[in-house]
């Protein structure tokens, strides 16, 4: 089984200069995953990029966790639409080639 790297929440808070309460509110909105092992809380390393993005949106744009939730949902929608568009474009190209 693949091993998952976990990072201590306190370490992340110190590094990014954020309050633990901010991480808690992201967690309560289901925006991040938290693993609790023997009463110590961690974030999977592979999710840190998402957390960094949330921190930037919060600090650079003064968006609260609820706003971040909205942004992430909309970004997900954009992403899905983009890949649907790319699929459709590919299919169209193949269709045009086949019918030349």
């Amino acid at each position: 089984m693949a091993q998952q790297e976990l990072i201590l929440i306190e370490t992340l808070c110190t590094h990014y200069e954020i309050e633990v309460s901010f991480v808690d509110s992201l967690y309560s909105l289901g925006l991040i995953e938290i693993h609790t092992i023997e009463q110590t809380r961690f974030i999977p390393e592979e999710k840190v990029a998402d957390l960094e993005k949330m921190i930037r949106i919060h600090q650079d744009l003064e968006v609260n966790p609820e706003g971040i939730d909205v942004i992430f949902n909309l970004l997900r929608k954009i992403n899905n639409l983009r890949s649907e568009l790319a699929d459709t474009k590919n299919r169209l190209i193949r269709y045009e080639l086949e019918n030349q």
Partner: peptide
């Protein structure tokens, strides 16, 4: 600045 940053920030304009 905040208004423009919210519009053009790279994290919200991938």
């Amino acid at each position: 600045y905040r208004k423009q940053a919210r519009k053009y920030h790279p994290d919200v304009n991938p």
